[in-house]
Amino acid sequence: MRLLLLAIGNRWRRDDGAAHRALELLGPQPGVSARSALQLTPEMAEEISPFDGVVIVDADIEPGATRLAPIEANPAARSPLGHSIGPDELLLLARKLYGFQGRAWLCRVPGVDFNEGDGLSETAESNAAAAARLLLEMTRQGLR
């Protein structure tokens, strides 16, 4: 079972970098690859295709608890102006273009401060720690 953890976000926008912090707190895990990026881009579709599972970890502007949920490859039509794509879009590209057969989840790490600056708010730091615990449990259970 090969799992990819993909953290995205901008560390210079404070809590937008919460996903990277979650992976730092988790640390290296056997059988798990980890990668950090500012945003999701189309070529990542090929990169995730060899894995059995992928977890996209992202900050969330909605308040609440850290949570983990499957991603549905059923994206709504979006305005084609942005330079990044959504987790559902990435999953669909991976399935359609590169035959990705694995499972995919989105780990949301709520934040409260997305202004310019580095360092996380207390809320985001706490949520990043919760995300690390969720991911640890997941990797230990082997994607069950």
Binding site: I8, G9, W12, R13, L38, A59, I61, P80, L81
Partner: peptide, 24 residues
């Protein structure tokens, strides 16, 4: 209208990328 903007491929690069994208 979007296409007019898209010609320039603008990059307002200090964005956040958190979940919670709003619709156009």
């Amino acid at each position: 209208v979007e296409a007019a903007i898209r010609c320039y491929d603008p990059c307002l690069s200090c964005s956040t990328h958190a979940v919670g994208q709003m619709p156009l």
